[in-house]
Design a protein around this nucleic acid. Structure first.
Lengths: 86, 86
DNA sequence: AGATATTTGTTCGTATGTATC
DNA sequence: GGATACATACGAACAAATATC
């Protein structure tokens, strides 16, 4: 039985969704994103799978986690060093 | 790429390597060996393959595993039953 | 001080699907 | 078809750090 797999793994889909929410300002820099148990529940996936999505985001520098505290959106790198930013 | 099998399966090779390390005292009786994720990473194999190697060692009595905890080197059987052992 | 709950971090145990030999 | 091997995924449990009561 031929079985293509047009969709990405769940953990990649979740990582993309979280990135989308960061881009949209739903999750703002410095603010926490939902915890692993919450994400697992919301997306109907295992906690370990939610964690794998977060691990992708950590490696990419999009978020950082503080153990026992939570996961937070990284501060975006200053892109216009000549402007009023400080 | 034609691949005869001059070598054993990876999981047997890994099992042999772990046995070697036990013999050499790198992994000592009662002490833990690296977990499946660690072995998979170190030897560049899938976690499932690392597990198969450990399963061989378990069947042989070389190690034992405690779920969610880790895998440990078995205590060697007393070989001189006539001595102070009881 | 002690106990409890929460959250990240990690592990073993298991199953499924895919691919190759 | 079976054996090997990989990636994905769920489940359960343990561990450590933190916060709260």
């Amino acid at each position: 039985m031929i079985e293509f797999r047009p969709d990405l793994p769940k953990y990649e889909q979740l990582a993309a969704e979280i990135r989308r929410r960061i881009s949209d300002g739903v999750y703002q820099p410095g603010a926490p994103i939902p915890g692993e148990p919450r994400l697992a529940e919301e997306f109907h996936i295992a906690r370990r799978t939610a964690r794998k999505a977060i691990e992708l985001l950590i490696k990419a520098g999009d978020v950082y986690t503080a153990r026992s505290i939570g996961t937070f959106v990284s501060q975006p790198p200053q892109e216009t060093p000549g402007s009023t930013a400080e």
